[in-house]
Structures are given as C-alpha cells and as structure tokens.
C-alpha cells in the first residue's frame, strides 16, 4: 500500500454534516438488553432456606435470615454495595427465587443506602 496525502479527509468532511453518534447519556438513554444483569430481586415466598446462594455468592453480598422458628419463612438482606452483579445466585437457586432487573443507575453517595431488605 502506498502513502497518500490526507486519506482520512473525505471521511472527516462527510462526518461534519452527519449527526454525531454520541448518546447524550443523562438526557437520553439507550434501552438495556433483555438479559441485562442489574439489581438482584428476591422473592421471599419461594425461598426454602438452602443457603446455596450464600455460599456461591463471590462477593458475599447475600444474607438469608430465618424469620420465624415454626414456619419456613425467610428474609434476605442484599448488600448491594458489595454485589458484583454476576447473577450466580440466579443460577444457583434451585427454586428460582432470584431474578435480575434492568436498573443500572444505582450510584449513591452513602453506601449504607444500598443495603436492601427483602421480606
């Protein structure tokens, strides 16, 4: 291939009259894909308290606590500040208690606000 004078110029000048591709993010948002791994959502009704998710969670972000002595009822505390959104809990759970939502703007100034309790 030989050298040419300003081979990039035609493309540059064409772009000058095209709409920029930049997404003006906070003002317009692109939709997330269907399988996006956002926040963990827990369904307490389905949980059987096997604690597989607690053992498999790489970030140790899940706590499962038994609510009553007699009934098989559990609540889950999600430490979302530790969560790495890998969705291993979704895979590990035998009863499909977990799912991931499409939320991604979860940044806050205080990490304590990220602690979520599912009852």
């Amino acid at each position: 291939m030989s050298l040419r004078i300003a081979p990039f110029l035609p493309e540059l000048l064409r772009s000058l009259f095209k709409k920029p591709v930049t997404v003006r993010y906070p003002f317009e948002k692109t939709p997330v894909p269907a399988g996006f791994r956002g926040n963990v959502v827990f369904d307490p009704a389905k949980c059987i308290g096997c604690n597989i998710c607690v053992g498999d969670c790489p970030a140790e972000a899940i706590e499962i606590i038994r609510v009553s002595e007699t009934e098989k009822k559990f609540k889950m505390i999600l430490h979302n500040d530790r969560c790495i959104h890998c969705a291993q809990c979704v895979d590990s759970c035998p009863t499909k208690t977990y799912r991931m939502d499409g939320e991604f703007e979860i940044a806050v100034l205080n990490r304590r606000q990220l602690k979520i309790e599912y009852k």
Partner: peptide
C-alpha cells in the same frame, strides 16, 4: 485522535453484541 475516535465508535458495535448476548458490556460472566 480522529483515528482513536473512529475505531472506538465502531468498537461500540461489538460491545453492543456482547452486551446483548451476555447481559453486560465488560464482565460477560
């Protein structure tokens, strides 16, 4: 810099594919 901007613009196409099939852009898991 222009070359950088253009290649990264087109890299977004691949990133979108990865985002689409794996769920996230960087850590596909």
């Amino acid at each position: 810099e222009s070359f950088f901007m253009y290649t990264w613009r087109d890299r977004e196409v691949v990133m979108d594919i990865l985002d689409w099939i794996s769920g996230n852009r960087v850590h596909y898991s």
